[in-house]
Design a protein around this nucleic acid. Structure first.
Lengths: 113, 113
DNA sequence: TCCATGCTTAACCGACTGGTTGAATATGGA
DNA sequence: TCCATATTCAACCAGTCGGTTAAGCATGGA
């Protein structure tokens, strides 16, 4: 989990994942959009691989990468735990607006406890 | 987004968020479970604050923190973009199992392109 | 066989990270 | 007023990060 969030905490790597969402990409293809050396890109890719976010298949002299969605799903689930906080908040706002609009009953924002 | 994922990329900070899911916590309360100095905990909290994940309210000499769900929702949404990859994968598995169970029609795993 | 291609590795650099300790700041209470 | 409490700030340290350049290693094709 540490490795996953850490890997996601870099815009270059997130863009690489976006690219991989379009299908398989070689290391060179992944590196192309960025103004960095191939060595630097290679490190980014290794970071993604280490986090389990991509899988690499060596075909001849090219390394073909594909998205590995498992860790993304795990991170999504982890964040999902907090879903009630933003939905609750919207519900609370909704209640306040509804009450305010109708009968003017003061209703304090209630943020759990 | 960089700051958010970076903040989440540390187990200590993630545990602090979990604690805050239970309601408001002071800096001291957030720091208590960890075998680190208060100064170190203060830095973690500042990191969470900088990422917009928490809000701080100074009450007298204590600093009370509360969860700020917005960036968590944003991260959740960002990951949601990839949802089709793990659901697709499950769908594919489902199709394979179903076909395998019924009529034995070979169906290659299809990972988009 | 020889060379271009695709990519990794190694060594290095400046910046940042997570941790420390010690001092500073500000509030609350006796 | 004086002290304890709650917290930050400043300086420091070792380790990691993202980047570089230069060299190395396979593979594919002429």
């Amino acid at each position: 989990m540490d490795a996953v969030f850490h890997a996601l905490g870099d815009a270059t790597r997130r863009q690489m994942l976006r690219s991989l969402a379009g299908g398989e990409r070689t290391v060179g293809q992944l590196a192309a959009p960025f103004a960095i050396s191939l060595a630097a890109a290679s490190k980014h890719i290794k970071t993604l691989e280490h986090a389990g976010l991509i899988r690499r298949e060596v075909r001849g002299r090219t390394h073909v990468c594909r998205l590995e969605p498992g860790p993304l799903a795990a991170a999504h689930d982890w964040l999902g735990f907090y879903e009630r906080f933003w939905t609750d908040r919207l519900d609370a706002l909704d209640r306040v607006l509804r009450a305010d609009d109708a009968i003017r009953s003061p209703d304090k924002e209630k943020t759990d406890e």
